[in-house]
Lab assay of single mutants.
Amino acid sequence: ATNIVGKVKWYNSTKNAGFIEQDNGGKDVFVHKSAVDAAGLHSLEEGQDVIFDLEEKQGKAYAVNLRIK
């Protein structure tokens, strides 16, 4: 899926990971530091509006192509 709108639920820069809550009510999506880095960002803030694509690896959904809304 592409161009999904959501809000950062939480992001821990020590653990280099967090979750994004989908505005469409879907399951929360894992976001890794690699996606944050690829977006040219240093970190994510709780409640921040984002747009992202979903990629599945080994049955788990990940946020990729992250951008700030």
Rank of each mutant, 00 (worst) to 15 (best):
F30W: 08
K33I: 06
N3S: 08
G18R: 01
Y11E: 00
K60E: 07
Y62P: 02
I51E: 07
S43E: 10
E56M: 14
K27R: 12
T2H: 12
D37Y: 14
V5G: 11
I51C: 08
G47E: 03
I68Q: 05
V5I: 12
N24I: 08
F52M: 02
I68Y: 07
K57P: 03
G40S: 06
L41I: 09
Q22D: 05
N12W: 08
A1L: 13
K33A: 09
L66F: 01
E56Y: 15
E21G: 11
H32V: 06
L41C: 06
D53F: 03
N12G: 03
D37F: 14
A63R: 01
F30T: 03
L66R: 00
D53W: 04
K9W: 03
Q48W: 14
V31H: 01
Q22Y: 15
S34L: 10
S43M: 11
N3V: 04
A39E: 02
H32F: 08
I51P: 00
K60C: 11
E46K: 15
K60M: 10
F30A: 05
L41Q: 05
Q58L: 12
V64P: 01
I68P: 07
W10L: 04
E45F: 15
V36W: 04
F19C: 11
G26R: 10
R67T: 05
H42S: 13
K69C: 12
V29P: 01
D49F: 15
L54Y: 06
K7L: 04
K9V: 05
I4G: 03
A35G: 03
G59M: 05
E45V: 14
N16I: 04
F52G: 01
N65H: 08
Q58I: 07
H42K: 13
N24L: 09
E21L: 12
F19S: 05
L54P: 00
L54S: 03
N24C: 11
L41E: 04
G25W: 06
L41R: 05
L41V: 07
N65D: 02
V8T: 02
W10A: 04
I68M: 09
N16K: 15
F30H: 05
G18Q: 01
K9Y: 04
D49A: 15
L66C: 02
G6I: 03
V5F: 13
I20C: 02
T2L: 13
K15P: 02
I68S: 06
I4S: 05
F30L: 06
V29L: 03
K7R: 13
V36D: 01
N24T: 09
A38Y: 07
F52H: 00
I20G: 00
D37M: 14
V5R: 15
L44G: 01
N65T: 03
A61W: 14
D53H: 03
L41A: 06
A61V: 15
K27D: 10
Q58V: 08
N3C: 10
I68K: 06
K33D: 02
S43K: 12
K9Q: 02
G40A: 05
E46G: 12
K57W: 13
G47V: 02
A39N: 03
N24M: 09
A17G: 15
A61E: 11
N12S: 14
Q58D: 15
E45H: 15
K69W: 11
G59W: 04
Y62W: 12
V64K: 08
K69Y: 12
E55W: 15
A17Q: 14
A17W: 15
A35Q: 09
I20D: 00
N16R: 15
D49S: 14
Y11L: 10
V8Y: 03
R67N: 03
Y62H: 09
N16V: 04
V64F: 05
G26W: 07
K9R: 10
S43T: 14
T14C: 14
G18Y: 07
S13F: 11
A63Q: 01
F30M: 07
V29E: 00
Y11M: 06
N12E: 06
H42T: 13
D37C: 14
G59K: 05
G40W: 05
A61G: 08
A38V: 07
I4K: 09
L41Y: 10
H32D: 09
V50N: 00
I20H: 01
V8D: 00
T14V: 12
D37K: 14
R67E: 03
K27F: 09
G47I: 02
A1W: 12
K69R: 12
A17E: 10
E45L: 13
D53S: 04
F19P: 00
V31E: 00
G6K: 01
Q22R: 14
G25L: 06
I4C: 11
A17P: 01
Q22A: 09
L66Q: 00
R67H: 05
F30D: 02
L44Q: 00
D28G: 09
K27I: 10
A38D: 08
K7C: 07
H42D: 12
H32S: 11
G18A: 03
V64G: 03
L41T: 03
L44T: 01
G26A: 10
N12F: 07
V64H: 04
A17Y: 15
G26Q: 10
A1H: 13
V50A: 02
A17V: 14
L54Q: 04
K27M: 10
D28P: 10
D49R: 15
E21T: 15
V5A: 13
F19Q: 07
T2S: 10
L44M: 05
G59F: 05
E45D: 10
V50P: 00
A35E: 08
D28K: 09
I51A: 04
A38N: 07
N24K: 10
K27A: 12
G6M: 02
N16Y: 10
S43N: 12
T14G: 11
K60G: 06
F19A: 07
A35C: 05
G40K: 07
Y62A: 06
W10V: 05
I4P: 01
K15R: 12
D28Q: 09
N16E: 11
H32W: 06
K15Y: 13
V5P: 13
D23K: 15
E56I: 15
I68G: 04
T14S: 13
K60W: 11
G6F: 02
E56S: 10
A38W: 06
G26K: 10
T2A: 09
G26S: 08
K7P: 00
A61F: 15
D28L: 14
K33N: 04
I4N: 06
T2G: 06
D28A: 09
G59E: 05
V36H: 01
V36S: 02
S43L: 10
N16S: 11
W10C: 10
A63L: 04
K69V: 14
E21N: 08
K57L: 09
Y11F: 09
E21V: 13
Y62E: 06
I51T: 08
H42G: 11
F19R: 07
E21A: 15
E21R: 15
V8G: 00
S13C: 14
Y11W: 13
K15G: 06
K33R: 11
D23L: 15
I20Q: 01
V29N: 00
A61H: 12
F52R: 00
A1Y: 12
N65P: 00
V8W: 07
D53Y: 02
K69F: 13
F30V: 05
K69L: 14
V31Y: 03
A63S: 02
V8F: 07
F30G: 02
E46I: 15
A63G: 03
G59Q: 05
G25D: 07
N12K: 08
A1D: 09
G40N: 08
G47D: 04
W10S: 06
S34H: 09
A38H: 08
G18K: 01
V5H: 15
